[in-house]
Design a protein around this nucleic acid. Structure first.
Lengths: 205, 205
DNA sequence: TCGTGCTTGTGAATGTGAACGCAAGCACGA
DNA sequence: TCGTGCTTGCGTTCACATTCACAAGCACGA
């Protein structure tokens, strides 16, 4: 196997490519060139070619990339060729919004369970799930769930993560404004809305 | 002026530093060394020193960084030393969650107006704001608002942005899964939840 | 069957950011 | 007043990512 380290930045762009190819498929376009795709995504053609070439030669010279099969390839690379289940922790306003967010469907990402520690929320229904008690988090061990979404206050996030670490969770999307200590077998992506908004004034003239 | 280009990555980390210094202040700690701070934030000490040194010499050798004055300096750099107002477009589930998100307060970022195009939402109250008709978006011209948060479906995002461009908006936090065309006087930060979650399975063993 | 035009794939060069290591220099105590 | 210990600030080195430029090669038409 011709092993080569694939840049993290390339991995970050792969879902973007997958979405683009999926949309092209619905538009019945058979092939697309790197320059056409670059225009859609506001990227440079060589970057797209380089990114895709890390995983093999998907395109045809003189023609472009075949839409359907390249989409399948990317899905396989990202392990999105099988439906992935995620557990959502935190059924507050933000959690509820995420539970019903339609954007996950394109990647076959499904919220399979919801937990909270607020007795007034436990038992209520959000979307197709019933909110369960966070104390019973280890029931997910039996459910083949390896992804978690964290939408809890910053001061309880770490204790939730400690619980998740015992439940075969391997990836966490953290929406709390805090820094999580995790075993290095778990990959964490943190999105901090306030931080992102807080950088914007700097760029204003 | 000894001009030097400051890395974007450094700017991205500045709100993180500001939050850390703000919290330290409430803990009545007068100074902090780069290594102590690095431990809190899971960063390397040299990186913190380099980041801060781009803007001047805030620290004292042998002692560390003075918490209160460094916090003020960073606030000034990020233009967060004056309260900033933002307009929220989209009063759906995600928009409502953001409107009541408590994390913005630390940075003195305030949601000053909310707009939507759904007649059933216009007139309702979210937090302290009343949802207004998107058709009347240009009323914000008179309100000294230069930030916008976009929580609308991907297919309507571009038309909203076109409207915002005429209203002195200079920074947009985009939560829709799409690529926005904007004049280059506007800085856009896009957060795509599905994309972020979509990268996680790749890293699972 | 051969030539032309177009687009990919890829090594090399450039640019950008992170990490390192050490000199500068403040505080504090003798 | 001087020496010691600690921590910053910064020049240099290293690693990573992007961009470039061109050869490889497929499709299509003559």
């Amino acid at each position: 196997m011709n092993y080569q380290k694939i840049p993290d930045e390339t991995i970050k762009r792969m879902p973007m490519y997958l979405r683009a190819f999926s949309i092209l498929k619905t538009e019945n376009q058979d092939t697309i060139s790197s320059s056409q795709l670059a225009e859609r995504l506001h990227l440079n053609p060589p970057q797209i070619r380089k990114d895709l070439s890390y995983f093999g030669a998907f395109g045809t010279r003189g023609v472009g990339y075949p839409v359907a099969s390249t989409a399948d390839q990317i899905r396989g690379i990202l392990k999105l060729d099988v439906p992935q289940k995620a557990v959502l922790v935190g059924a507050g306003r933000l959690g509820a919004a995420i539970a019903e967010y339609p954007g996950f469907a394109l990647f076959d990402l499904n919220i399979a369970a919801i937990f909270d520690n607020d007795p007034s929320k436990i038992g209520t229904k959000i979307g197709t799930n019933i909110v369960e008690d966070i104390e019973k988090i280890d029931t997910i061990k039996a459910c083949d769930i390896h992804l978690a979404i964290l939408a809890v206050p910053a001061d309880t996030a770490q204790s939730v993560v400690d619980g998740l670490a015992d439940c075969h969770i391997k990836g966490i999307l953290n929406l709390s404004a805090c820094y999580l200590a995790v075993p290095k077998s778990i990959k964490v992506v943190t999105i901090d809305l306030a931080m992102e908004l807080g950088t914007l004034p700097y760029y204003m003239m």
